[in-house]
Write a protein that binds this DNA or RNA. Structure first.
Lengths: 217, 217
DNA sequence: TGTAATGTTTACCAACCGGTCAAATTATCA
DNA sequence: TGATAATTTGACCGGTTGGTAAACATTACA
């Protein structure tokens, strides 16, 4: 009998494990490059190296595949923000959050683009995740930042917009990679880009652009 | 005789003017929401309130429509950067650039998303514009910033990454609008958002997060 | 080893895709 | 007004889309 995926309450076959892995990897490749509507099941099957009906045996619809992919990736994606530690030194924490986010933009650009595509097109598939788990996590960390500001450990600022600023500046290097490369030209497209970006952003967020005599840091 | 669009060397009819306007408006709506591949000609025709063959009478292909739209919008989009004045006060110039970009994110979010979609998906249709006019303009303004830094008027920093940071933080409010709304919740989604964002960003770029006694500014 | 569950493939479908065509309609202007 | 050019429409085309049906192959396991 053909058991639909949802009904598998028991353990998964070795084959299932392997194929689902290959499919989600291919789905990440295609969805991140073209968005949900722009991606085709045929293309994903092709990248995964299997026939379309075979792929649809593991994920019955394009939508189910996309959802499974989002579920798997979202958790990892929020890890750096979770690591944000209320007890740590504020400047150090923000610094290493920036660095971690930048590393993720460098090492997992497809994941970044997956979400960017989704949110950009109105987040029709992940609205719940945004308003639920994401908002709760951000609320929690925003409270931490607010406390730091109140205690005079960092400048008074809106914690939400601070988080937005860190997200946008770091993910920019994944989402707008083509533009960054085009503007920087051939020379600066190598590995050094991320080091330059890290140095600039850490400096920006800590000291701004004001001229200053080697701040306390 | 049916004159293809390209052959119109003479002045354009009133009808042509109106219809092309309506089509590009509809195309902006649809392309910005779904990206090139995700958009359909039928949908654009529907939004424009005309039949598909009628639309294709004015723009012979989906591609031509997209190109015309990009051409029309790109110039306007780069205006704020052009206004960047080498002779002005550096901090003031950067401040008002941020403000102008933020105003564009607020007033023309669809234009922002049009480019975001395009770049995100590898910029297959605007690679030339990025490597040509865009790069040249950025190079020019980066030189201005570098001169300011050299003269000690602002902190020493990589001018390219500074421009990227301004682009990403401001356009974030257009491109990731859904996420911003979801995180901020109902209360803060009104007009005040942009005022908060402006205040935060101007502060961030000028002073950073370091605690400071009312800087010179 | 046998057999039932799992996995894979071929052939196919209706709906939709970008785009064409010729006929019908409307605007322009001598 | 009439004829000519510009515009609009409905019917249609080949290719692609997400997804299905059923036969076939393979695996797991008693």
């Amino acid at each position: 009998m053909v058991l639909p995926r949802a009904a598998r309450t028991q353990r998964r076959t070795r084959i299932q494990e392997e194929k689902e892995e290959r499919i989600l990897e291919a789905a990440l490749e295609v969805f991140s490059a073209h968005g949900f509507r722009g991606a085709t099941v045929d293309q994903i099957a092709d990248v995964a190296g299997m026939s379309k009906p075979n792929l649809l045996y593991y994920f019955r619809t394009k939508d189910a595949m996309h959802r499974a992919l989002i579920d798997r990736v979202l958790d990892t994606w929020l890890d750096p923000l979770r690591a944000f530690d209320a007890e740590g030194n504020p400047v150090t924490e923000i610094r290493s959050y920036i660095r971690r986010k930048l590393e993720m933009a460098r090492d997992f650009p497809r994941e970044s683009r997956l979400f960017a595509n989704e949110v950009l097109q109105g987040a029709p598939h992940i609205e719940d995740e945004l308003k639920g788990p994401l908002k709760e996590l951000v609320d929690e960390k925003a409270e931490v930042i607010r406390a730091w500001a109140k205690a005079g450990k960092i400048a008074k600022c809106d914690p939400y917009h601070l988080i937005f600023a860190i997200w946008s500046t770091t993910q920019h290097y994944a989402d707008f990679d083509v533009q960054v490369r085009a503007v920087l030209g051939q020379g600066n497209s190598g590995e050094g880009r991320f080091e330059d970006a890290a140095r600039f952003l850490e400096r920006l967020f800590v000291d701004g652009l004001q001229v200053s005599e080697q701040p306390i840091s």
